[in-house]
Amino acid sequence: MFKFMLNKNLLLLAYKLLTDLLFLVLIFFTFTLVIESLLPGIITSHISFLKIIFLLALNLLTLYFLGHYLKINFPTNQTNKKTVLFLTVLFSLLIFNSLLKLNIFLAIIILFLALLISYFLYQEFLEVNS
């Protein structure tokens, strides 16, 4: 049984499937965020954000330990500018949407500050590491 558990191919298979699952959960999470911003409660009345985030965290942790155990190393890619642009636009829209009931100028200032903070955090944690 123990031998079966440690079968490297089986673990690699699990790793590949967990990566696919992570991709699907991330897509689901992104769509949930967008739909929830349009109609609050429409999805979270059926599946709470907590459950989705818990599933994401569990998936990431398993992938991390499995990758560590299997010594899987991916080359660190350069930041994809298209992805960054897409994420920036998406998060800007989500933040601005949540601030719609505020004064328009206040909403723009808050959005600008949020983007500025995100940029510095990104530089602090990701750019330095790379």
């Binding site: 690699l12 790793y15 590949k16 990566t19």
Partner: peptide, 9 residues
């Protein structure tokens, strides 16, 4: 295939 680098038998 998101993990092309990982080859299986």
């Amino acid at each position: 295939d998101l993990t092309k680098e990982i080859q299986l038998n």
